[in-house]
Protein backbone atom coordinates (compact mmCIF):
# COMPACT_ATOMS: atom_id res chain seq x y z
CA UNK A 1 0.00 0.00 0.00
CA UNK A 2 2.79 2.38 0.91
CA UNK A 3 4.43 1.78 -2.42
CA UNK A 4 1.18 2.45 -4.25
CA UNK A 5 0.66 5.74 -2.48
CA UNK A 6 4.25 6.65 -3.11
CA UNK A 7 3.77 5.84 -6.76
CA UNK A 8 0.75 8.13 -6.97
CA UNK A 9 2.55 10.94 -5.21
CA UNK A 10 5.41 10.54 -7.61
CA UNK A 11 3.01 11.00 -10.51
CA UNK A 12 1.59 14.16 -8.95
CA UNK A 13 5.08 15.41 -8.30
CA UNK A 14 6.20 14.74 -11.87
CA UNK A 15 3.26 16.63 -13.24
CA UNK A 16 4.40 19.64 -11.19
CA UNK A 17 0.83 20.28 -10.06
CA UNK A 18 1.77 21.06 -6.47
CA UNK A 19 4.52 23.33 -7.66
CA UNK A 20 2.13 25.34 -9.82
CA UNK A 21 -0.34 25.66 -6.96
CA UNK A 22 2.32 26.96 -4.62
CA UNK A 23 3.32 29.46 -7.28
CA UNK A 24 -0.29 30.62 -7.60
CA UNK A 25 -0.62 31.15 -3.84
CA UNK A 26 2.76 32.83 -3.67
CA UNK A 27 1.68 35.21 -6.41
CA UNK A 28 -1.72 36.00 -4.89
CA UNK A 29 -0.70 36.55 -1.28
CA UNK A 30 1.43 39.67 -1.95
CA UNK A 31 -1.52 41.04 -3.89
CA UNK A 32 -3.88 40.58 -0.93
CA UNK A 33 -1.25 41.84 1.47
CA UNK A 34 -0.95 45.03 -0.52
CA UNK A 35 -4.72 45.44 -0.68
CA UNK A 36 -5.03 44.95 3.08
CA UNK A 37 -2.19 47.36 3.70
CA UNK A 38 -3.86 50.01 1.56
CA UNK A 39 -7.12 49.52 3.38
CA UNK A 40 -5.54 49.99 6.78
CA UNK A 41 -3.75 53.06 5.49
CA UNK A 42 -6.78 54.77 3.99
CA UNK A 43 -8.97 54.22 7.04
CA UNK A 44 -6.24 55.74 9.16
CA UNK A 45 -5.91 58.71 6.87
CA UNK A 46 -9.62 59.25 6.63
CA UNK A 47 -10.04 59.42 10.37
CA UNK A 48 -6.76 61.18 11.01
CA UNK A 49 -6.57 59.08 14.09
CA UNK A 50 -4.68 55.93 14.84
CA UNK A 51 -6.71 54.83 17.82
CA UNK A 52 -8.70 51.78 16.81
CA UNK A 53 -11.35 52.38 19.47
CA UNK A 54 -12.33 55.63 17.83
CA UNK A 55 -12.36 53.85 14.51
CA UNK A 56 -14.54 51.06 15.78
CA UNK A 57 -16.88 53.55 17.41
CA UNK A 58 -17.18 55.32 14.06
CA UNK A 59 -18.01 52.04 12.40
CA UNK A 60 -20.68 51.40 14.97
CA UNK A 61 -22.20 54.82 14.46
CA UNK A 62 -22.10 54.36 10.70
CA UNK A 63 -23.87 51.04 11.05
CA UNK A 64 -26.46 52.61 13.32
CA UNK A 65 -27.03 55.30 10.75
CA UNK A 66 -27.46 52.76 8.00
CA UNK A 67 -29.93 50.87 10.17
CA UNK A 68 -32.08 53.94 10.57
CA UNK A 69 -32.57 54.17 6.84
CA UNK A 70 -35.98 52.84 5.94
CA UNK A 71 -35.26 51.43 2.51
CA UNK A 72 -33.38 48.32 3.43
CA UNK A 73 -33.90 44.62 2.85
CA UNK A 74 -34.73 42.59 5.88
CA UNK A 75 -31.86 40.14 5.73
CA UNK A 76 -29.38 42.93 5.25
CA UNK A 77 -30.79 44.72 8.27
CA UNK A 78 -30.48 41.52 10.27
CA UNK A 79 -26.87 41.13 9.24
CA UNK A 80 -26.09 44.70 10.25
CA UNK A 81 -27.72 44.22 13.64
CA UNK A 82 -25.61 41.17 14.37
CA UNK A 83 -22.50 42.95 13.21
CA UNK A 84 -23.40 45.86 15.46
CA UNK A 85 -23.85 43.74 18.56
CA UNK A 86 -20.54 42.07 17.88
CA UNK A 87 -18.65 45.31 17.34
CA UNK A 88 -20.15 46.73 20.48
CA UNK A 89 -18.99 43.67 22.39
CA UNK A 90 -15.45 44.05 21.09
CA UNK A 91 -15.48 47.68 22.08
CA UNK A 92 -16.88 47.11 25.54
CA UNK A 93 -14.25 44.47 26.21
CA UNK A 94 -11.41 46.43 24.71
CA UNK A 95 -10.56 43.91 22.02
CA UNK A 96 -9.19 45.13 18.73
CA UNK A 97 -10.57 42.86 16.00
CA UNK A 98 -8.42 44.41 13.29
CA UNK A 99 -5.06 44.46 15.05
CA UNK A 100 -2.63 44.27 12.18
CA UNK A 101 -0.12 41.44 12.12
CA UNK A 102 0.60 38.42 9.99
CA UNK A 103 -1.67 36.09 12.01
CA UNK A 104 -4.58 38.48 11.50
CA UNK A 105 -3.86 38.54 7.80
CA UNK A 106 -3.77 34.74 7.75
CA UNK A 107 -7.12 34.68 9.43
CA UNK A 108 -8.70 37.12 6.99
CA UNK A 109 -7.10 35.33 4.07
CA UNK A 110 -8.38 31.93 5.07
CA UNK A 111 -11.85 33.24 5.86
CA UNK A 112 -12.11 34.72 2.40
CA UNK A 113 -10.61 31.85 0.44
CA UNK A 114 -12.45 28.97 2.07
CA UNK A 115 -15.41 28.98 -0.26
CA UNK A 116 -13.71 29.48 -3.60
CA UNK A 117 -9.96 29.94 -3.91
CA UNK A 118 -8.67 26.96 -1.96
CA UNK A 119 -11.35 24.54 -3.26
CA UNK A 120 -10.39 25.60 -6.78
CA UNK A 121 -6.74 24.84 -6.15
CA UNK A 122 -7.62 21.47 -4.68
CA UNK A 123 -9.76 20.78 -7.69
CA UNK A 124 -6.78 21.31 -9.98
CA UNK A 125 -5.00 18.43 -8.28
CA UNK A 126 -7.98 16.14 -7.90
CA UNK A 127 -9.57 16.58 -11.32
CA UNK A 128 -7.28 14.38 -13.35
CA UNK A 129 -6.24 11.79 -10.79
CA UNK A 130 -8.27 9.07 -12.46
CA UNK A 131 -9.62 10.63 -15.62
CA UNK A 132 -6.18 11.35 -17.03
CA UNK A 133 -5.32 7.69 -16.70
CA UNK A 134 -8.50 6.85 -18.51
CA UNK A 135 -8.02 9.32 -21.32
CA UNK A 136 -4.31 8.58 -21.62
CA UNK A 137 -4.91 4.84 -21.63
CA UNK A 138 -2.45 4.19 -18.80
CA UNK A 139 -5.26 2.85 -16.66
CA UNK A 140 -4.99 -0.47 -18.45
CA UNK A 141 -1.36 -0.81 -17.44
CA UNK A 142 -2.30 0.05 -13.88
CA UNK A 143 -5.11 -2.47 -13.69
CA UNK A 144 -3.13 -5.35 -15.17
CA UNK A 145 -0.94 -5.38 -12.06
CA UNK A 146 -1.78 -8.04 -9.47
CA UNK A 147 -3.37 -5.55 -7.15
CA UNK A 148 -7.04 -5.28 -6.30
CA UNK A 149 -8.84 -2.40 -7.96
CA UNK A 150 -10.06 -0.85 -4.74
CA UNK A 151 -6.51 -0.71 -3.46
CA UNK A 152 -5.43 1.22 -6.51
CA UNK A 153 -8.24 3.69 -6.04
CA UNK A 154 -7.56 3.94 -2.33
CA UNK A 155 -3.92 4.73 -2.98
CA UNK A 156 -5.00 7.50 -5.29
CA UNK A 157 -7.39 8.82 -2.67
CA UNK A 158 -4.72 8.78 0.02
CA UNK A 159 -2.40 10.65 -2.29
CA UNK A 160 -5.19 13.20 -2.70
CA UNK A 161 -5.60 13.59 1.05
CA UNK A 162 -1.88 14.13 1.42
CA UNK A 163 -1.73 16.75 -1.31
CA UNK A 164 -4.77 18.55 0.08
CA UNK A 165 -3.02 18.73 3.44
CA UNK A 166 0.06 19.97 1.70
CA UNK A 167 -1.85 22.72 -0.12
CA UNK A 168 -3.52 23.92 3.07
CA UNK A 169 -0.19 23.98 4.89
CA UNK A 170 1.46 25.76 2.00
CA UNK A 171 -1.20 28.46 1.98
CA UNK A 172 -0.82 28.89 5.75
CA UNK A 173 2.95 29.14 5.60
CA UNK A 174 3.00 31.41 2.56
CA UNK A 175 0.33 33.78 3.83
CA UNK A 176 2.12 34.06 7.16
CA UNK A 177 5.60 34.43 5.73
CA UNK A 178 4.80 36.93 3.01
CA UNK A 179 2.36 39.17 4.87
CA UNK A 180 4.65 39.25 7.90
CA UNK A 181 7.14 41.30 5.91
CA UNK A 182 4.62 44.15 5.90
CA UNK A 183 2.57 43.61 9.06
CA UNK A 184 5.13 42.02 11.38
CA UNK A 185 5.05 38.47 12.67
CA UNK A 186 3.54 39.05 16.10
CA UNK A 187 -0.02 38.81 17.33
CA UNK A 188 -0.54 35.12 18.00
CA UNK A 189 -1.77 35.65 21.52
CA UNK A 190 -4.43 38.26 20.75
CA UNK A 191 -7.77 37.19 22.24
CA UNK A 192 -10.63 36.73 19.82
CA UNK A 193 -14.28 36.07 20.37
CA UNK A 194 -16.02 33.00 19.09
CA UNK A 195 -19.15 31.06 19.81
CA UNK A 196 -21.61 33.57 18.36
CA UNK A 197 -24.65 31.96 16.95
CA UNK A 198 -27.77 33.48 15.49
CA UNK A 199 -31.30 32.46 16.10
CA UNK A 200 -33.68 34.57 14.12
CA UNK A 201 -32.77 38.18 14.60
CA UNK A 202 -31.01 37.69 17.91
CA UNK A 203 -27.32 37.24 18.33
CA UNK A 204 -27.00 34.45 20.84
CA UNK A 205 -24.05 35.22 23.03
CA UNK A 206 -24.41 32.71 25.82
CA UNK A 207 -21.70 30.46 24.37
CA UNK A 208 -19.41 33.36 23.48
CA UNK A 209 -15.91 33.04 24.82
CA UNK A 210 -12.42 34.25 24.11
CA UNK A 211 -9.69 32.15 22.60
CA UNK A 212 -6.17 33.18 21.65
CA UNK A 213 -5.65 33.89 17.98
CA UNK A 214 -3.35 30.93 17.35
CA UNK A 215 -6.07 28.56 18.44
CA UNK A 216 -8.60 30.43 16.35
CA UNK A 217 -6.37 30.10 13.32
CA UNK A 218 -5.71 26.43 13.96
CA UNK A 219 -9.45 25.87 14.17
CA UNK A 220 -10.12 27.76 10.99
CA UNK A 221 -7.45 25.86 9.12
CA UNK A 222 -8.94 22.63 10.40
CA UNK A 223 -12.23 23.68 8.83
CA UNK A 224 -10.53 24.71 5.60
CA UNK A 225 -8.82 21.35 5.46
CA UNK A 226 -12.16 19.63 5.90
CA UNK A 227 -13.82 21.71 3.18
CA UNK A 228 -10.92 21.06 0.81
CA UNK A 229 -11.16 17.33 1.49
CA UNK A 230 -14.86 17.32 0.69
CA UNK A 231 -14.39 19.27 -2.51
CA UNK A 232 -11.42 17.03 -3.37
CA UNK A 233 -13.53 13.91 -2.78
CA UNK A 234 -16.33 15.14 -5.01
CA UNK A 235 -13.90 16.08 -7.75
CA UNK A 236 -12.35 12.65 -7.33
CA UNK A 237 -15.73 11.04 -7.84
CA UNK A 238 -16.30 12.99 -11.04
CA UNK A 239 -12.83 12.05 -12.13
CA UNK A 240 -13.76 8.38 -11.79
CA UNK A 241 -17.06 8.86 -13.62
CA UNK A 242 -15.83 10.90 -16.55
CA UNK A 243 -13.02 10.27 -18.95
CA UNK A 244 -12.37 13.88 -19.79
CA UNK A 245 -10.45 16.00 -17.30
CA UNK A 246 -11.82 19.16 -18.87
CA UNK A 247 -15.39 18.01 -18.16
CA UNK A 248 -14.52 17.25 -14.53
CA UNK A 249 -13.01 20.68 -14.09
CA UNK A 250 -15.89 22.36 -15.86
CA UNK A 251 -18.55 20.72 -13.69
CA UNK A 252 -16.70 21.35 -10.44
CA UNK A 253 -15.95 24.94 -11.40
CA UNK A 254 -19.59 25.56 -12.23
CA UNK A 255 -20.71 24.00 -8.95
CA UNK A 256 -18.30 26.05 -6.84
CA UNK A 257 -19.10 29.33 -8.52
CA UNK A 258 -22.81 28.56 -8.38
CA UNK A 259 -22.34 28.08 -4.64
CA UNK A 260 -20.82 31.53 -4.29
CA UNK A 261 -23.68 33.06 -6.23
CA UNK A 262 -26.37 31.05 -4.49
CA UNK A 263 -25.18 32.00 -1.00
CA UNK A 264 -26.11 35.56 -1.89
CA UNK A 265 -29.63 34.87 -3.01
CA UNK A 266 -31.09 31.75 -1.48
CA UNK A 267 -32.31 33.27 1.75
CA UNK A 268 -35.88 32.23 0.99
CA UNK A 269 -35.27 28.94 -0.83
CA UNK A 270 -34.83 26.82 2.22
CA UNK A 271 -34.07 23.40 0.79
CA UNK A 272 -30.98 24.84 -0.93
CA UNK A 273 -29.21 24.35 2.35
CA UNK A 274 -28.72 20.69 1.50
CA UNK A 275 -26.48 21.56 -1.43
CA UNK A 276 -22.83 21.14 -0.56
CA UNK A 277 -21.71 24.36 -2.22
CA UNK A 278 -23.70 26.72 0.01
CA UNK A 279 -22.20 25.07 3.07
CA UNK A 280 -18.58 25.74 2.29
CA UNK A 281 -18.08 28.91 4.35
CA UNK A 282 -17.60 27.06 7.62
CA UNK A 283 -15.36 29.74 9.08
CA UNK A 284 -18.33 32.12 9.16
CA UNK A 285 -19.77 30.09 12.01
CA UNK A 286 -16.63 30.60 14.04
CA UNK A 287 -16.55 34.34 13.49
CA UNK A 288 -20.29 34.71 13.98
CA UNK A 289 -21.53 35.91 10.61
CA UNK A 290 -25.13 35.50 9.54
CA UNK A 291 -25.89 32.30 7.69
CA UNK A 292 -27.24 32.49 4.14
CA UNK A 293 -30.27 30.39 5.05
CA UNK A 294 -32.21 30.31 8.27
CA UNK A 295 -31.56 27.16 10.28
CA UNK A 296 -28.01 26.48 9.17
CA UNK A 297 -25.43 25.87 11.87
CA UNK A 298 -21.91 24.57 12.10
CA UNK A 299 -23.07 21.07 12.97
CA UNK A 300 -25.58 21.07 10.15
CA UNK A 301 -23.04 22.17 7.57
CA UNK A 302 -20.46 19.68 8.75
CA UNK A 303 -22.96 16.84 8.47
CA UNK A 304 -24.17 17.92 5.04
CA UNK A 305 -20.60 18.07 3.77
CA UNK A 306 -19.76 14.74 5.38
CA UNK A 307 -22.77 13.06 3.77
CA UNK A 308 -21.82 14.41 0.37
CA UNK A 309 -18.23 13.24 0.79
CA UNK A 310 -19.23 9.75 1.91
CA UNK A 311 -21.69 9.45 -0.95
CA UNK A 312 -18.95 10.57 -3.32
CA UNK A 313 -16.58 7.95 -1.97
CA UNK A 314 -19.15 5.17 -2.18
CA UNK A 315 -19.97 6.07 -5.77
CA UNK A 316 -16.29 6.29 -6.72
CA UNK A 317 -15.40 2.93 -5.28
CA UNK A 318 -18.39 1.00 -6.58
CA UNK A 319 -18.08 2.47 -10.06
CA UNK A 320 -14.34 2.00 -10.24
CA UNK A 321 -14.41 -1.63 -9.14
CA UNK A 322 -17.32 -2.55 -11.39
CA UNK A 323 -16.71 -0.64 -14.56
CA UNK A 324 -15.41 -2.20 -17.75
CA UNK A 325 -12.13 -0.82 -18.91
CA UNK A 326 -11.32 -1.20 -22.55
Amino acid sequence: MNKLVHNELLKLFRKRRLFVIILIIAALVPLFTYAQYQEVKTTREKLGNVDWRTQLQQEIVDTQNRLSSSRMQDDWRKYLKIRLAQQQYYLDHNINPQAPGAPTFMRVFVENSIDLLLPLLVMVVAADLVSSEASGGTIKLLLTRPVKRWRILLSKYLALILSVSFIVTASAVLSYGISGVVFGYGGWGMPLLTGFSTSGEELVTNNVHLIPQWQYILMEFGLVWFVCLVVGTLTFMLSVLLRSTAAVMGIMLAALIAGAILSNMVSSWESAKYLFMVNLSLTDYISGMATPIEGMSLGFSLIVLLVWAIAGLVVSFTVFTKKDVY
Binding site: F166, L223, W225, F226
Partner: peptide, 19 residues
Protein backbone atom coordinates in the same frame (compact mmCIF):
# COMPACT_ATOMS: atom_id res chain seq x y z
CA UNK B 1 1.84 16.35 4.13
CA UNK B 2 1.27 13.60 6.67
CA UNK B 3 2.32 15.92 9.46
CA UNK B 4 0.08 18.73 8.28
CA UNK B 5 -2.84 16.35 7.83
CA UNK B 6 -2.48 15.49 11.50
CA UNK B 7 -2.21 19.12 12.56
CA UNK B 8 -5.32 20.13 10.64
CA UNK B 9 -7.15 17.14 12.02
CA UNK B 10 -6.36 18.42 15.49
CA UNK B 11 -7.65 21.83 14.44
CA UNK B 12 -10.88 20.30 13.21
CA UNK B 13 -11.30 18.28 16.38
CA UNK B 14 -10.74 21.42 18.37
CA UNK B 15 -13.52 23.17 16.50
CA UNK B 16 -15.91 20.39 17.46
CA UNK B 17 -14.77 20.47 21.06
CA UNK B 18 -14.86 24.24 21.26
CA UNK B 19 -18.13 24.91 19.50
Amino acid sequence: SILSALVWLVGLAWVLQDQ
